[in-house]
Simulated assay, not measured.
Amino acid sequence: MKIRIEPYGDRQLETVVRLSLRAWTPVFDSLQQVIDADVYRSFYPDGWRVSQQKAVEEVCTAEDTNVWMAMSAEGDAIGIDTGLTVGFVAVKLHSESSMGEVYMVAVDPDFQGQGIGTALMEFALFWMKDAGMSVAMVETGGDPGHAPARHTYEKLGFGLLPIARYFKKL
């Protein structure tokens, strides 16, 4: 699929929220399977969708975050509307450490596996380097739901920093 990447605009907030909640449903289903049920409920007392919607809204409107959209660039020949939002990426720059952080990235489930996540990541990496950053960082989970994300990051040359994070409900 051919895409174009363009800057996010405030009118696209609802579209980005809907896309991210659809994209991350398998991730949160997976997390629920690997985290203690009480801990999971503590993290998401109103359900994960409520907290994720708030997180996406905050990221998209934060002054210290740069957000871009992946838009379909092919028309009706393949049955897709030109200009359909198929993904997004949000990047923060940490100038003091010369590090760029991919803070969020998501691809619409109907378009996953077509290189859109890779294209968004490559765009973000180029932009970070052009902004003077010397290191790029992205975080993801180690559970099965995050496996596609890990695959993309490793394919792009990211190296894993082994960190163990433990949780216990009090």
Rank of each mutant, 00 (worst) to 15 (best):
S30I: 05
G75K: 10
W68M: 03
W48F: 12
W48H: 11
R41N: 09
E63W: 03
D76W: 07
S72I: 11
D36H: 06
V56W: 00
G100P: 10
T25A: 15
V59D: 01
Q53C: 12
G79F: 08
L21C: 10
Q12F: 14
L31H: 14
Q32D: 11
D46C: 05
Y40G: 12
Q33T: 09
Q32R: 15
L84F: 11
S97H: 08
M71I: 12
V86M: 13
T15G: 10
D81L: 13
E57F: 01
Q52W: 08
V56D: 00
V39E: 07
S98R: 12
F43K: 10
V39D: 01
V89W: 03
V89Y: 01
G47E: 08
V17K: 09
V34G: 13
M99L: 10
E58N: 10
G87W: 03
S72C: 11
E96F: 13
M71R: 15
F43Y: 07
F28V: 02
L21S: 07
D64S: 07
M99P: 05
V86W: 02
N66T: 09
V50N: 06
R49F: 14
R18M: 03
V67M: 03
R18K: 11
A90K: 04
E57Q: 14
L31T: 06
G47C: 08
S20Y: 01
K54S: 15
W68V: 08
S98N: 04
L19G: 06
W24N: 14
V56H: 02
E96P: 02
V56C: 00
G75F: 13
L21Q: 14
A70W: 03
S51A: 13
Y40R: 09
D46S: 14
G100Q: 08
E63C: 03
V59G: 04
I35Y: 15
V34M: 07
A70C: 09
A37F: 05
P26C: 11
V27H: 14
G79I: 01
A77W: 11
L31S: 08
D36L: 03
E57H: 07
A90N: 00
V27N: 14
P45I: 08
T85L: 05
S72N: 07
S42D: 11
L19M: 11
L93A: 11
F43E: 08
G83H: 09
L84T: 15
R41I: 05
E57G: 09
G83M: 14
D64R: 09
Y40S: 14
S95Q: 06
K92G: 05
